[in-house]
Amino acid sequence: MSGQKLHLTSGRQRWIFLISIISLIGFVALAALVKRQSLASFDLAILTTVQAWEHPLITDIAIGLSFIGSIGPVIVLCLIVIAVLYWALGHRMEILLLIVVVFGSSILNLLLKWVFQRARPDIHRLIEITGYSYPSGHSMVAFSFYSVLAYLLWRHIDSGAGRGILISISVIMILGIGLSRVYLGVHYPSDIVGGYLAACAWLAFLVRSYEKRMGKRANPKDMNDSETA
């Protein structure tokens, strides 16, 4: 039974590794198109379409989502999740994964922005903001935080309905925060997609490393046997 479990875990880790590689390749390909300005028409078409929805209520919602996706609120949310994981569930390794995924994503985003140095759109901004555009920091952090949160809480929720709600909230927040940045005129759509791809590659890489480490801790004998086979 333990050998079968190890085999399933190895298969799962291969799929996670594949997701990481595909996301990385997608990010590099998109970055090349951005660098060559091959997506200018695509970005402009979507940007103007989204901004055509402009309405005071939608603007308030977009500003609210954008605020939730900024670093201050994300830190507060992380502290809340850390408190739950530590005091309610006693899972310290999960806390470390959360911290490395979210804050590592923020640092990675700063490095990528410095590499590409893409100017922000200057067509119709509803808020003012400085800094480079590609990839979107809000979309990277949102994808990292809500995805790793769903990953960590999934195993602690037994009901299908509960898991469905968890995934739905995560997807809504990730897409909502990304779309809000386009609506507010501070990011091109390709900035958002690039942020998602970069965050997915980063998250998948760390989750695979985490699962390999936890697998070795849970089945040290099985892992040793598989390494010597």
Rank of each mutant, 00 (worst) to 15 (best):
125 R>S: 06
26 G>N: 15
213 R>C: 03
82 I>P: 01
82 I>N: 07
104 G>Q: 05
117 Q>T: 11
188 Y>H: 09
104 G>E: 05
50 V>M: 10
59 T>S: 12
12 R>A: 08
3 G>A: 12
137 G>L: 01
40 A>P: 03
27 F>G: 05
71 I>S: 11
123 I>V: 14
129 I>W: 06
97 L>F: 08
64 G>K: 09
161 A>W: 10
186 V>S: 05
55 H>M: 05
25 I>T: 10
183 Y>A: 02
69 G>C: 06
180 S>E: 08
158 D>T: 12
122 D>G: 11
148 V>T: 04
117 Q>M: 13
200 C>P: 00
187 H>Q: 05
213 R>P: 05
27 F>E: 00
62 A>D: 01
99 I>L: 14
76 V>G: 13
228 T>F: 10
113 K>V: 00
167 I>P: 04
125 R>K: 15
130 T>Q: 10
191 D>C: 03
168 S>H: 13
220 P>W: 10
25 I>F: 10
161 A>P: 09
163 R>S: 04
75 I>P: 03
157 I>C: 06
188 Y>T: 00
195 G>E: 10
188 Y>I: 01
157 I>D: 01
209 S>C: 03
157 I>F: 05
202 W>H: 06
200 C>V: 10
109 N>A: 01
1 M>V: 14
11 G>D: 13
197 L>A: 02
212 K>S: 08
82 I>S: 11
36 R>E: 15
181 R>T: 09
192 I>A: 01
227 E>Q: 11
126 L>A: 15
188 Y>A: 07
60 D>W: 02
185 G>N: 12
165 I>T: 09
209 S>A: 15
119 A>K: 07
88 A>L: 07
29 A>C: 11
111 L>D: 03
136 S>R: 00
55 H>S: 14
9 T>E: 09
172 I>N: 00
137 G>P: 07
57 L>H: 11
192 I>S: 04
158 D>Y: 08
40 A>M: 09
88 A>R: 13
49 T>K: 12
27 F>R: 00
17 F>W: 15
147 S>P: 09
180 S>I: 03
74 V>C: 02
158 D>S: 13
153 L>Y: 01
33 L>M: 02
143 F>L: 03
112 L>A: 04
140 M>P: 02
130 T>L: 07
100 V>S: 06
218 A>F: 07
80 I>V: 15
88 A>D: 12
137 G>W: 00
228 T>G: 03
221 K>N: 04
218 A>R: 11
194 G>V: 03
172 I>Y: 11
121 P>C: 05
